[in-house]
């Protein structure tokens, strides 16, 4: 096996660039339509925004309340997901537990499950008459549904798999030889996890957390089913948008604009991973 001389390699790269310039029409047309399909609704949102009254709308009492609640619940859900999801990802990626494939499938079910179904399921388990909920109610007088806690739980249920998948991927991509080195330097598995593994996959954990947070922020189905729609305690931004659309469409547009801004900010945070410079460094 000998490497081709640099000249021929350059020539080949040049050839590829030339063919790349002409996209065949059967691919180009659907591609353009696809972009339009994704971008036009967002442009429509911007066009229809009542810019003159944006400040006024944002200052309305319900808006700030919903936004604050959304940010709080999404953040709490992300923290809970980190606390539970990172160890879970480690078990999926590193341990030799039996039924690991089944375990992974179970963990990823919420990714494909309609969120409303998730909400119903949570209600059946944690509701006042639920399997665990009834016991919580009798033993401690704790009821979860229709509280802010319920919002956090619903969001965690839906968003945590994003974190687990992301962190597991990072763990699988990380060089396990660093863990061998740590072991030969006297570090047990827990010490190795804290001092070596976690720092190595930190970018993956960060990306997973951002993804998880964004998913939690936009959560609608599970939240409205399990936590209801009470302003101040369970009405998050998506619920507020939906409700506003019925009565005052202008407010709905402004609220949507806020969520769009938050989404774009999230994308900006992740740009190193997903746009252009992706995947070069972890």
């Amino acid at each position: 096996m000998t490497a081709p001389p640099p000249d021929s390699r350059r020539a080949r790269a040049g050839g590829r660039r030339r063919t790349g310039a002409g996209v065949p029409a059967p691919l180009l047309v659907p591609a353009v339509l696809g972009v339009a399909f994704l971008v036009l609704p967002l442009l429509g949102l911007l066009v229809r925004t009542p810019w003159s009254s944006v400040g006024e709308q944002l200052a309305a009492p319900g808006v700030g309340q919903a936004l604050r609640l959304s940010l709080l619940c999404a953040t709490l859900a992300t923290l809970l997901s980190l606390f539970l999801g990172v160890p879970l990802a480690w078990v999926l990626a590193r341990s030799s537990v039996r039924w690991r494939g089944v375990l992974r499938a179970l963990v990823t079910v919420p990714l494909v499950l309609p969120p409303v179904v998730g909400g119903v399921a949570l209600f059946l388990v944690l509701g006042r008459k639920g399997l665990i909920g009834s016991w919580l109610d009798e033993a401690f007088g704790i009821t979860i549904p229709f509280t802010t806690t319920a919002v956090v739980i619903a969001e965690t249920f839906v968003a945590m798999p994003f974190l687990v998948i992301s962190v597991e991927g990072a763990l699988r991509a990380a060089d396990t030889r660093f863990e061998d080195v740590a072991a030969t330097l006297g570090a047990g598995r827990w010490t190795t996890f804290r001092r070596v593994t976690l720092p190595l996959v930190a970018p993956g954990v960060g990306a997973g957390a951002v993804l998880c947070w964004a998913r939690a922020l936009g959560e609608f189905g599970a939240t409205i089913t399990f936590a209801g729609n009470y302003p101040g305690t369970t009405q998050t931004m998506p619920l507020a948008v939906y409700l506003a659309l019925q009565n005052e469409p202008e407010a709905a547009i402004v609220l949507s604009l806020v969520l769009l801004a938050v989404s774009l900010a999230t994308l900006l945070l992740l740009r190193d991973r997903w746009l252009g410079r992706s995947g070069t460094t972890l």
Binding site: D175, R177, F178, D180, V181, A182, A183, T184, L185, G186, A187, G188, T191, T192, V196, P199, L200, A202
Partner: peptide
């Protein structure tokens, strides 16, 4: 006796210095 309880030092082909330290 697991690796971390052995009195040893090991050098690998690639130095494998912890990149975050």
């Amino acid at each position: 006796v697991p690796a971390h309880e052995r009195s040893l030092g090991m050098v690998f082909q690639d130095a494998l210095l912890f990149p975050h330290l």
